[in-house]
């Protein structure tokens, strides 16, 4: 019952709520102490916390500069927990992270896909576009002439992977989908088929060439 609608109920002093596994406490303005209600001292206290972290990080950064000048940047103590992407990447990325798609291949390099449109049907973002064609081999019969994924629309839900009856589409852990041009963010059939595990470990392959830096 909303306490505002029923004034008979006593107003709780604070509210506790579990959100994302953490206990949050919300306090009403009425139970702040006089010191807290003065406002300015508490603001200054907050500034002192952020300020001390800032100066600590800056000091550590100066230390880091010294290490870097001697060519031993890796050994320097780290201040903030920020990961300097894209120069650095998190080492603790989960193995089941859903990232870029690939199309699996038959032994001769042709797509395993039979253009059944199940992934396009299941896709909640409608980002998969397929055109089917008649395959010269009557045993295969149907294959995708065009298979485009608009990676900028994709929400990486993995439904396409789940809907596929022939295990033709998979999501890899590679999350490097950024680009400066929308046109380059449409992955075509040949790009999706060009996936090669050894190549991915060495470098990130972008469709239409390397993105322009800053």
């Amino acid at each position: 019952m909303n306490p505002l609608l029923n004034p008979k109920l006593p107003e709780p002093a604070y509210k506790e709520e579990f959100t994302a596994g953490r206990l949050f406490t919300y306090r009403n303005p009425s139970d702040l102490t006089l010191w807290e209600r003065l406002y300015v001292p508490e603001v200054l206290r907050g500034l002192s916390i952020t300020g001390s972290i800032f100066f600590k990080n800056m000091g550590l950064w100066l230390v880091w500069l010294g290490y870097w000048a001697r060519g031993r940047a890796n050994e320097a103590p780290r201040g903030a927990v920020t990961v300097y992407y894209p120069e650095e990447e998190r080492p603790d990325m989960t193995k089941v992270n859903r990232g870029k798609h690939i199309l699996t291949q038959r032994l001769n390099g042709e797509p395993q896909c039979v253009a059944c449109y199940m992934c396009a049907t299941a896709c909640p973002a409608w980002c998969i576009h397929i055109d089917a064609g008649e395959h010269p081999d009557p045993a295969i019969e149907k294959y995708p002439v065009r298979f485009d994924i608009e990676i900028d629309k994709c929400i990486f839900c993995g439904y396409c992977e789940e809907a596929c009856p022939v295990d033709a589409i998979r999501l890899t852990t590679d999350y490097h989908t950024v680009d400066y041009l929308r046109e380059r963010m449409v992955y075509d059939r040949d790009y999706l088929l060009s996936w090669n595990p050894t190549k991915v470990q060495q470098e990130h392959v972008y469709p239409g060439g390397e993105p322009r830096r800053g």
Partner: peptide
């Protein structure tokens, strides 16, 4: 049961 490639599906 080749429904994935069958137009009637």
């Amino acid at each position: 049961i080749d429904c994935p490639i069958c137009d009637k599906a």
